[in-house]
Simulated scan of single mutants.
Amino acid sequence: MPTQTLAPTRTWSTVLFDLDGTIVDSAADITASLAHMFSSLGLDVPSDDVLRSYVGPPLLDSLRLTAGFDDAEAWEALNVYRDHYGEHFLRSPVFPGVAGLLERLHAAGIPIALATSKPESMARQVLDHAGLSQYFTEITGASDDEELSTKADVVREALRRLQAKGIDTSNAVMIGDRGYDTLGAAANGVPTILVEWGYGSPAEAADTIAVVHSTDQLRNLLLG
């Protein structure tokens, strides 16, 4: 992805973070559970590139659109995946520098919210396990029944919760690694900074206000 600059420097009222590919490096654990899912269902396991494409978007949607499952098949596959992934998801490491960045933002008094398509209950466990929950004003993710799952809906819910606490969200920014993050944030009038260390392709940098390759660059854009 080409690195862009953000000008002029802005003061953000709150920062929203994606989880997978932005805070934690979870691709290997997710794709391993996906491979287990396909194998358990008696299906050919897709290539690594195809499995990796599942990382980020709501999985139920990807199972319908990418794998071609009908609703019943998608839910069966999702449950098989969750059973396996539930035993491995806490192994995913935090990307280098991210914990320090969250600590700096929190110390600066900038409200931070998580907005992830991962189930919220699981996302909370990930942040708790990594010792990062203390930095978040709100932790928002998909509902277990997938009624709340799209990035646009999750971002909207995160903003609603922040506003209910009296937090100014008029100048919010989304930090993510996929085009889904950009689109979901844009649906709520929120711009996105894309991180290169995640799982997105160069094409997914379109419509972002900046692309960064390091947490130092991101810190400079968020804190000046």
Rank of each mutant, 00 (worst) to 15 (best):
A32V: 01
A203E: 15
M122W: 03
P111L: 01
P191D: 15
G97P: 01
F136I: 03
L102T: 10
G189R: 10
A77W: 07
D153R: 14
A130S: 09
L159D: 01
F95T: 11
M122G: 03
T31R: 10
R104T: 14
A107K: 05
W75Q: 13
H129L: 00
A206N: 08
D61K: 11
E76F: 04
G166D: 11
V190K: 05
G179S: 15
T22C: 04
L223W: 00
P96W: 04
N171Q: 13
G97V: 08
T169F: 07
I167R: 12
L162K: 03
G200F: 05
E120T: 09
T14C: 15
T137A: 04
L65E: 14
G21T: 00
W75M: 13
K118G: 05
L63F: 12
L51N: 06
L41K: 02
R160Y: 09
G131A: 07
A107H: 11
D153I: 11
V211K: 07
R124Q: 04
P202Y: 10
G21P: 09
I112D: 01
R104G: 00
V211D: 12
G21F: 06
T192L: 12
A107I: 10
F17M: 10
R178P: 12
D71F: 04
D177A: 06
D145W: 03
V154M: 03
A113H: 04
G224N: 13
D144Y: 06
L16W: 01
K118V: 02
R161T: 05
E87Q: 14
F17G: 11
L223D: 15
E103G: 12
Q4V: 14
D29M: 07
A210N: 10
S39T: 09
S170M: 13
D49Y: 05
T192M: 13
V195G: 06
M174C: 10
V211L: 15
G56S: 06
D48G: 02
Y180C: 08
E120V: 08
G200N: 01
R91N: 13
P191S: 00
I110Q: 03
R64E: 08
Y85A: 05
D25A: 00
M37A: 06
P202G: 06
E87I: 04
E146A: 13
S133E: 15
A123N: 13
V50T: 10
P96Q: 04
Q125T: 05
I139K: 05
L105F: 07
